[in-house]
Lab assay of single mutants.
Amino acid sequence: DIIVVALYDYEAIHHEDLSFQKGDQMVVLEESGEWWKARSLATRKEGYIPSNYVARVD
């Protein structure tokens, strides 16, 4: 699995987006352009995240 960590807070604009806080970790389900589908490890919610707001966890 690809795990990413949020570098900034993000508040969902569209209903299919996933809100998150800086430091939250998410599993990337699908990488497509600038918006990736991800699942929050904390809340288990799924949605689209801006890929430039996150960094991969090695």
Rank of each mutant, 00 (worst) to 15 (best):
D1W: 01
I2D: 08
I2Q: 07
I2F: 07
I3P: 03
I3Y: 10
I3H: 02
I3G: 03
I3D: 00
V4G: 02
V4W: 06
V4Y: 12
V5I: 11
V5Q: 11
V5F: 15
V5S: 11
V5T: 11
V5W: 03
V5K: 03
V5D: 03
A6T: 02
L7E: 13
L7D: 05
L7G: 03
L7M: 12
Y8S: 09
Y8N: 15
Y8W: 13
D9S: 10
D9Y: 02
Y10T: 02
Y10H: 06
Y10N: 01
Y10D: 03
Y10F: 13
Y10R: 09
E11N: 13
E11V: 10
E11G: 08
E11S: 15
E11Y: 04
A12G: 12
A12T: 05
A12K: 15
A12D: 02
A12L: 02
H14A: 07
H14C: 06
H14P: 02
H14M: 08
H15A: 10
H15Y: 11
H15V: 14
H15K: 14
H15N: 15
H15S: 14
H15W: 12
E16Y: 14
E16W: 10
D17A: 11
D17G: 10
D17P: 01
D17L: 10
S19W: 03
S19K: 10
S19H: 10
S19R: 07
S19T: 14
S19N: 05
S19P: 13
F20S: 00
F20H: 01
F20V: 09
F20A: 02
F20L: 04
F20Q: 01
Q21Y: 15
Q21I: 13
Q21K: 14
Q21H: 15
Q21L: 12
Q21E: 07
K22D: 01
K22Q: 11
K22S: 12
K22V: 12
G23S: 05
G23E: 09
G23D: 05
G23M: 04
G23T: 02
G23R: 03
D24K: 04
D24Y: 03
D24N: 06
D24M: 03
Q25R: 12
Q25N: 11
Q25E: 15
Q25A: 04
Q25M: 07
Q25W: 05
Q25L: 06
Q25F: 04
M26N: 02
M26G: 00
M26A: 00
M26P: 00
M26I: 05
M26Y: 03
V27S: 06
V27Y: 04
V27P: 03
V27G: 04
V27K: 15
V28P: 01
V28L: 13
V28T: 02
V28F: 04
L29W: 08
L29R: 07
L29T: 14
L29A: 06
E30Q: 12
E30S: 03
E31Y: 03
E31D: 07
E31V: 08
E31G: 04
E31W: 06
S32K: 15
S32N: 03
S32E: 14
S32H: 15
G33V: 05
G33E: 10
G33K: 11
G33T: 08
G33P: 09
G33S: 09
G33A: 06
W35T: 15
W35D: 09
W36R: 06
K37R: 10
K37S: 07
K37W: 11
K37P: 10
K37M: 14
K37H: 15
K37A: 06
A38C: 15
A38L: 03
A38M: 02
A38Y: 02
A38K: 02
R39F: 05
S40Q: 09
S40M: 14
S40D: 11
S40R: 09
S40I: 11
S40T: 08
A42N: 15
A42T: 12
A42C: 02
A42Q: 05
T43M: 04
T43E: 10
T43L: 06
T43N: 10
T43W: 02
R44Q: 14
R44G: 14
R44S: 14
R44V: 10
K45N: 09
K45Y: 08
K45V: 12
K45T: 14
E46V: 11
E46A: 11
E46N: 07
E46F: 05
E46T: 09
E46C: 11
G47D: 01
Y48D: 04
Y48L: 15
Y48C: 10
I49C: 04
I49P: 01
I49M: 01
I49H: 00
I49Q: 00
P50H: 15
P50K: 14
P50R: 13
P50S: 06
P50Y: 12
P50V: 00
P50M: 09
P50F: 09
S51I: 11
S51Y: 05
S51R: 13
N52I: 09
N52S: 12
N52T: 12
N52Q: 09
N52E: 12
N52A: 11
N52M: 14
Y53T: 05
Y53A: 11
Y53M: 07
Y53N: 03
Y53E: 00
V54E: 00
V54F: 02
V54Y: 01
V54I: 06
V54Q: 01
V54M: 06
A55I: 08
A55V: 08
A55L: 09
A55Q: 13
A55K: 05
R56D: 06
R56A: 09
R56H: 09
R56M: 07
V57F: 09
V57D: 04
V57A: 06
V57C: 12
D58Y: 12
D58H: 07
D58N: 11
D58M: 00
D58W: 02
